[in-house]
Design a protein around this nucleic acid. Sequence first.
DNA 1: CTTCCCTAATCC
DNA 2: GGATTAGGGAAG
Length: 187
Amino acid sequence: MSEASLLASQLWSQMPRVGGTRTRRRRKAKGDAKKRRLSDEQVRFLEMSFSDERKLASGRKAHLAAAIGLDGKQVAVWFQNRRARHKNKQLEEAYLKLKLEHEAVVIEKCHLENEVLQLKEKLLEAEEEIRKLSWSVNGGNLGSSFSTVGLQPTLGEFGMEEEAELAITDEYDFHNYTMEWTNPYGI
DNA sequence: CTTCCCTAATCC
DNA sequence: GGATTAGGGAAG
């Protein structure tokens, strides 16, 4: 508190240039005394208080204001702006984290898709093998009992070709989505 | 009342 | 040009 008076020596360091330069007040020229930077000491006090509690009870506001020689309103405004800054920082961190997670998932998806392709290939090979074996076991013309419920209907039921097309379509959409997602603010 | 949001004004 | 201080309005 005693420091406050010492700090107060350089409070309103600058006043708006009323003289030569243009000083349009925003919408209202309420009197003619506003704005200017807070001193380092004031900011340090405010930062300490903010780390204690990011919202202001009116009692603390008045106390703080008196301690560093500011309006209660200025303290309130400072806290609001500080909260906004903090929120933006958090948001950006969350975004970065999400982006990393997303990239990891994209990679995993890619691996899984490759795995699916390989498995499908193996499936085809295995079916080919079965066909050969059944042919050699049953002979050429006895295969009818097997072939009526044979492999082609099975393929049809599982919808292999349609699945493949869908997979390609999915991947296309997904990549478009990825590009937009990694660039939400155009940065 | 207070807080949030948008954004103008200002400083560096 | 980004960071900071403020004004004004909406929402609670």
